[in-house]
Design a protein around this nucleic acid. Structure first.
Lengths: 252, 252
DNA sequence: CGCAAGTTTGATTCTAATCAACGCTGGTGG
DNA sequence: CCACCAGCGTTGATTAGAATCAAACTTGCG
């Protein structure tokens, strides 16, 4: 793991190119661009235009894309894979702000640097745009502005749900809610609702739900003993009793 | 109080007009519109145009503007006063999503209804626009779209900070962070950083910070005993030791 | 195979919640 | 005018849920 008190990552030491070395001209015009959520309803011409400003990178797992405080320069879109966004406190306490998957956008921020760190969970394909190019693109295709706004509002709504979870739910309720969210996200990506893929570690889940590793582990075990879920292999979770899980999640 | 399990408010039973009865033509062209944050840099003509679509209402304290689940029809801007936004669980557990003040906007949401309840804390002056009129306004003044987007991103950043607070901070750290935020907000409104006004009840603070009333009360008392703050009168808090408060807030 | 990292399980501690009582304040009505 | 009451806030005693501390187990990899 080592994300908690690791020295700044030396990108070059990793077995992949430094993401900053990728330039648009070097990027092949692959069709992954179609998967970018905010251009889902663009015309072929517009997609082509988009392709000229984006560049694409394949990153390994546990790769830090940018850190909290880094100068904001790019916006990223996930073509495939999974990314976590997190904030750290000076003493190492960590809060994961979100788990992102295929189609999700990140890297928005206000002046003064990114306000979270972004790190891949699994090997991940990213598309990247500079804010400058994105702006000129928006000038060409004004619809994009509305689309970005809608996405920000959606993120805001999710964040508010997460506040309720963190502030008022018990460990059991938190885990149940988490599983249901991942399941819904699976459906959204065209996968079956169960088994739910859990690409992230227990530590990640704990830092997302405001719990400790041990409590997350115990809660999974407990839900399994209650017959509500099954844990066939690490990284996967079968839901046996949707009704019970839903009721639990809402505190019923 | 009674916000937890009150029957749906009968607006007419209150001593103020039902907010839904207010129509644009009836609204005087008061200059309060200038205080709407998202039109701060508009030209006089544009402000005049804005005035034709907004309408204005003075509401008493503890007035429910809309409820979670209500059909989304309007966007609101606070001219003066304070509003809280909250979510409820079926069993009455409550999470306050945010405290809003003069200049703040609320009522954004996605299809399917508002995702929180909005209630005044103090007597409050609100401006209101239908989403429809706001859309036509945005068509006229495209700058507004960017402005709304920026505001949504700011809210998102705040929400992410709140996740860190709820998930990883101790009671002391939560209260310290809360006081610093209110103080910063005071400055932003042109008021001195201290004394910090606390128009909301202990119950509201508790439901905002993911604590109980008793813990909030005890923590205030403790910070007072430590000489970090003073509590001269209910509703106000003096900060004696900014450095200590800041250090506490960050977990130093 | 052996090691390191991640996960599970168990024992104990601790923070904040719960339960309970009391005091303050502001509004109401006798 | 003052007594009463309701709502809010504070304080104290006890409990509970999750954290911490500790150890064993599992998994994946060189």
């Amino acid at each position: 793991m080592g994300s908690l008190n690791m020295p700044p990552l030396d990108f070059d030491a990793q077995k992949t190119p430094h993401i900053a070395d990728l330039r648009s001209p070097q990027c092949r015009n692959c069709d992954i661009v179609r998967e970018i959520a905010f251009c889902a309803d663009l015309s072929p011409d517009e997609v082509k235009r988009l392709a000229t400003v984006r560049c694409h990178a394949a990153l390994p797992a546990s790769f830090t894309v940018f850190r909290e405080g880094d100068e904001v320069d790019h916006v990223y879109s996930i073509s495939a894979g999974a990314v976590k966004l997190y904030k750290l406190m000076p003493d190492g306490r960590r809060q994961i702000i979100g788990f992102l998957f295929s189609g999700d956008l990140f890297g928005l921020g206000i002046d003064g640097g990114y306000c979270y760190t972004a790190e891949t969970i699994t090997p991940t394909h990213l598309c990247r745009f500079t804010h400058r190019k994105l702006d000129s693109l928006i000038a060409e295709i004004p619809r994009l502005e509305r689309r970005m706004f809608t996405m920000a509002v959606k993120d805001l709504v999710s964040a508010q749900d997460q506040m309720l979870l963190l502030g008022r739910k018990t460990a059991r309720e938190k885990v149940a809610t988490f599983l249901l969210r991942l399941s819904r996200r699976s459906i959204q990506m065209g996968l079956p609702p169960s088994p739910v893929a859990l690409p992230m570690s227990r530590a990640d889940i704990a830092d997302y739900l405001g719990l400790t590793i041990e409590t997350v582990s115990r809660t999974f075990t407990q839900l399994k003993r209650d017959g509500i879920i099954g844990l066939p292999a690490s990284g996967h979770c079968i839901v046996n009793d949707w009704e019970a899980l839903r009721e639990l999640a809402e505190g019923g």
